[in-house]
Design a protein around this nucleic acid. Structure first.
Lengths: 231, 231
DNA sequence: CGCGCTTTGTGAACGTGTGCACAACTGCAT
DNA sequence: ATGCAGTTGTGCACACGTTCACAAAGCGCG
């Protein structure tokens, strides 16, 4: 078992679901559940059981036929596969409304993504403390990224500054970006970008909402978290 | 509306991209650009030109060969298709960190999703004013939803209260939900749910970040459905 | 030990999404 | 008019993702 096998490529759609399974398994583990079937996990995750089995099969054959999956072991395997065996400090660019909310949200640190720093271009914002972290000037970005070994940056600026923020992050050495600004970031090859755009989500809901009136009800577009990451 | 043409079903992946095109076209329009080619739009959206043409073809044949697409007309068509010809008031459940940030974020109203109300279960939070909207008690939900004709609800509660919030929303008459809580909501058939989960996004980035170290590979999923990443 | 019950792991079929390549068409110059 | 350069719209092939269906395998019990 200690044989580190060649790392299989895991389909993007599966990668997007693993965190969901992980959270559910964690909850189950804290309720002293030791074993779970693909059927049970599927129900809790809101997906098909066959999909769960196929997803998990990419990690290896870690289930026991006739029984199910050992929760604790599965948690370990998923965490390992997702690279969650150690913390990933993040740096937030933009200390406005959103940046503050993100920094003040403890869920980040709890889930292995401690906020290593918050920066803003506005000198007036520098110095205040949010969620235990002092806001620093954006010029300090390279120093923060290097000293804290940050590889993930969060863009929480107004749209007009987002591209600049991204470029500064990349220059400072960040290789993954989570973008909250409603713009399409242009980044060099090899930099992963994921986007969270509230307006887009609402507009998608609007589409299905609008269709609803015309015809009767119908199944709705589920959230495909199946978005690529990587340029 | 017999004359109203039969509504083609638009692929989900396309629906998810239309809002992106819409935003870009809006920006171009405000810069007095009258016409844009699929190539040009594709570059700005970080996608393939053929994909843009196919996406737009679902709306109808609104381009001019040899020329491109008339920006203003395209904006109109996309807005119509997405149901953005009128506002969609939203109600936010949860006046915590995130709920406040969302309510204070003007982008919502500007993009056609005015905040019709914010509610919280905590009496202590009721009464304060955020972004011009007074926080009300969650028991007022049905009244708000009905009087303001709200069909979209936003769940911004802690995870443990999210399912309850969703059920209250549905009972009050909401048919679409945007969920920020890290839980899988169980809702009746016919209710649309979209999820925004920061931890999941970060964990996906973690996966690619972790792979990066092992091998010097990059560019895993190349193009993606919803996200924009260009180089 | 063997039998029946349960559940996994996966081959294969199907459905959805993507990208190429090119015919069809437009507008302009001559 | 005719030709040419540019761009759309789409058929087609391929890649990716989902679901079914079932053999293989573990477990408990008599």
């Amino acid at each position: 078992m200690p044989v580190e096998r060649v790392r299989r490529r895991i389909p993007e759609a599966t990668v997007a679901r693993l965190p969901i399974y992980l959270r559910i398994l964690g909850e189950r583990a804290s309720e002293e559940v030791e074993c779970i079937s693909s059927e049970g996990l599927a129900e809790l995750a809101g997906v098909n059981a066959a999909k769960v089995r196929k997803d998990l099969s990419y990690l290896g054959s870690y289930g026991t036929r006739g029984v199910g999956y050992e929760v604790a072991f599965l948690v370990y395997q998923i965490r390992r596969e997702l690279g969650l065996t150690h913390d990933w400090p993040v740096v937030i660019v933009g200390a406005g409304n959103l940046g503050q909310a993100l920094a003040g949200y403890n869920g980040f640190g709890e889930r292995g993504f401690p906020v290593a720093g918050i920066v803003d271009i506005e000198p007036a914002k520098v110095g205040s403390v949010i969620g235990g972290v002092r806001v620093r000037h954006i010029d300090d970005l390279p120093q923060i990224v290097q000293s804290r070994r940050v590889s993930i940056g969060v863009v929480a600026t107004p749209p007009t500054s987002a591209q600049d923020a991204a470029e500064r992050l990349v220059r400072a050495g960040v290789t993954s970006i989570l973008n909250f600004a409603p713009v399409v970031l242009a980044v060099p090859r090899g930099i992963s970008v994921r986007k969270v755009d509230l307006a887009v989500e609402l507009q998608i809901l609007s589409y299905y909402e609008q269709r609803r009136v015309g015809v009767g009800l119908q199944a709705v577009g589920s959230n495909d978290s199946t978005r690529g990451a990587s340029a």
